[in-house]
Design a protein around this nucleic acid. Structure first.
Lengths: 219, 219, 219, 219
DNA sequence: GATGAATGAGGGTTCATTCAT
DNA sequence: TATGAATGAACCCTCATTCAT
């Protein structure tokens, strides 16, 4: 497994730094992140970060790659064993869910990255993303050829799943961690607030998977 | 129309400031934005911003409200005239598409806001969001009662449409404006790059609408 | 009377500005004062101050002169009627007490001015101060000649009275207006706090006058 | 000795910063002081001040405490060895003179602090001041019990000495350092100017001590 | 490998002052 | 006479980065 292998290869200090950086970047974004805070959270001196990894940008790239690289690996492994485009598609989505569940920081990181138009995405990350996208392309093409999928724009198909999932994960995390925001809603309309809470509690990932397949599969 | 009325009521200077701020916040996020740059882009002295609006946070709130308030207004107007839940749902989604098309900054702004967990969302914005969400709630409930929609988690239903749309709009903008990023893809795999370009060119919004309705409507 | 005559000669607006400025300068000093706050307190637009009086420095000079000019006038009037150096000295001190009582801002203004070494004292103020000092000089010289005073350094004699008085007035005002500070003392030592409060309540001015005369008069 | 021990314990940089800050605050007061100037005077980068001490307010507190803490220590040491209230009182005053002489900035700092009503006095300073005041209280009470002092308001007694001394020190410093002000007087009245200069040159502290004791001691 | 100290380059905000009306 | 709007010049503070140890 990508993640674990990586962690074993790296020094304790490195791991602590990356972990802390991941959390902070996910929480407040690249420009919002303070190297000071990352160092403090990692329990190391600020200069140590520079010694081991380099400047803020390099640190950010490292964080992103840790997550996107793992995602690509997982999807690859998952899809490989499946038979037929429909099954492959399902496995593809499930691998993404798995990754997102294991890396709670992936959702916010990706949202911000998309929002900023990948202005600073390093090549490594672009490669990871392309690996992921190429796999979907193959699956959808095979499915169209075999007539199990409705004809659809590949990019849109991808986003039909990724979009709701990432949004949902963020909303879920916000609802759980950020009491301020939930309280705001509670104060505005208690009933809607209750209903929203209930819906967030129900596993959204599966629902999204169900609806997406319903949209894309024939019949 | 909300937007136009607002613009007429406000002074030239105010409008220029808000407009510039919207662009900058959308581009680089709250922490990435520099008041200096906003002022320069608006063609006013930095102090003028503080004179008219207040600090950076107030400016950001103003920018967000301008967009979310307009969205809520549009949806309301659009949905009002429609008959039956299915038609209302379609109009609801169309109003969102309309808003997103008219405010290119909405997509990145919303993504970042969702990513940051609405940590600093002022009450005004929360109210706007709730208005929007409450309308969908009513539509879906009516639809479920009348048996035209499949049973579905409301929040997920909302995100099924909003997620892909916002992602798509961001990707589209990135592809068009950020040559660096597109070039990166071109260099990695020319074929995929070409295909992606073609798919982005095709109107994604309609495709998303079609697929979302396919997922949610019965039959 | 200096003060009243001046007020009658000046426009309502001017009086309101000077009054507000006096309070603010006394409260927070020259550099601590904000023209904005003075304008707000005076109930006029900031630009009005510039129109009527001029820049911050001119405003400050005006404020100082209003108070020192009045002090000089009062002392002159008071001392004139008295017979003999001892009586004159008493009247001199009493006039100062009177002025300080009527202008609560005099004490802090003077302290700050002394602390800053009169770095920005305009000529008008210097003239006022000199008038006051020259009167004391004459009285003390006459008293020394007639043998009713002990030989003493004139400046020191002046400060023997002025110093305690100004300090006392400031301490008194602080005790009465600044609950925070008094509370601090109360928390540190309740007994000392009580005693201090009682002593401040007793009229300090008379006590100072008594002790000063005891120090300066023969016998 | 407090001051020296402190200086040894602190880093060179810290000492240079505090020293520079003391001078600047004394010269132009808290609001008049510019952190930039303090940094320049200390020969360090502005950020170094924030690194070592904190914000402007913390710096000010440090400066005040350095001086008031030393004063309290000196008085304590001085008074301890003395016998009888009269001797103790003399020693008490002498210790103050000593402190004031060693810290030329004490006089202006204290004047401004008194003028501003201790609005921002931190607890440490309040403790220092209380220590000083409590000692005088004990001495005066003992003296009153033993019949060597005339009955007097303690606070006033304190101010009878402190007031003239602090005023005198400020006037003296102004006269020596601020040629502008002296020149102003010289131009207004050459004779008074000469006399004043002569009186300032004579040691005022001793004169003040003599007169104060004359005022407070019986007989 | 790790860190405390130091800093240059801004970043947000304030403020005295001006000016068109 | 009076003012709302606008601004240049600071001012306090922060932050990514470096360096001697």
């Amino acid at each position: 497994m990508y993640t674990r292998a990586l962690k074993d290869k790296r020094s304790e200090t490195m791991n602590r730094i990356i972990e802390a950086a991941t959390a902070v970047f996910a929480d407040v974004g690249y420009s919002g992140a303070r190297v000071d805070e990352i160092a403090k959270k990692a329990g190391v001196n600020k200069a140590t970060i520079y010694y081991h990894i380099g400047d803020k940008e390099a640190l950010y790239a490292q964080v992103l790659h840790d997550v996107t690289g793992d995602a690509a690996d997982r999807i690859e492994e998952n899809v490989e064993g499946a038979k037929g485009p429909a099954e492959k598609l399902k496995r593809y989505f499930e691998a993404i869910v798995e990754t997102v569940d294991e890396h709670p920081s992936l959702a916010p990181l990706m949202m911000r990255e998309v929002a900023s138009g990948g202005q600073n995405v390093p090549v490594v990350i672009a490669q990871d993303l392309m690996r992921i996208y190429a796999m979907l392309l193959q699956i959808l093409e095979a499915g169209a050829r075999e007539g199990v999928f409705i004809p659809a724009n590949t990019l849109v198909a991808h986003l039909m799943f990724l979009g709701p999932l990432i949004f949902y994960k963020n909303v879920e995390a916000t609802w759980k961690n950020n009491q301020t925001f939930a309280d705001l809603f509670a104060r505005l309309d208690e009933e809607i607030y209750q209903g929203m809470g209930a819906e967030i509690a129900a596993s959204g990932s599966e629902e999204i998977l169900r609806l997406t397949l319903r949209a894309l599969l024939k019949g």
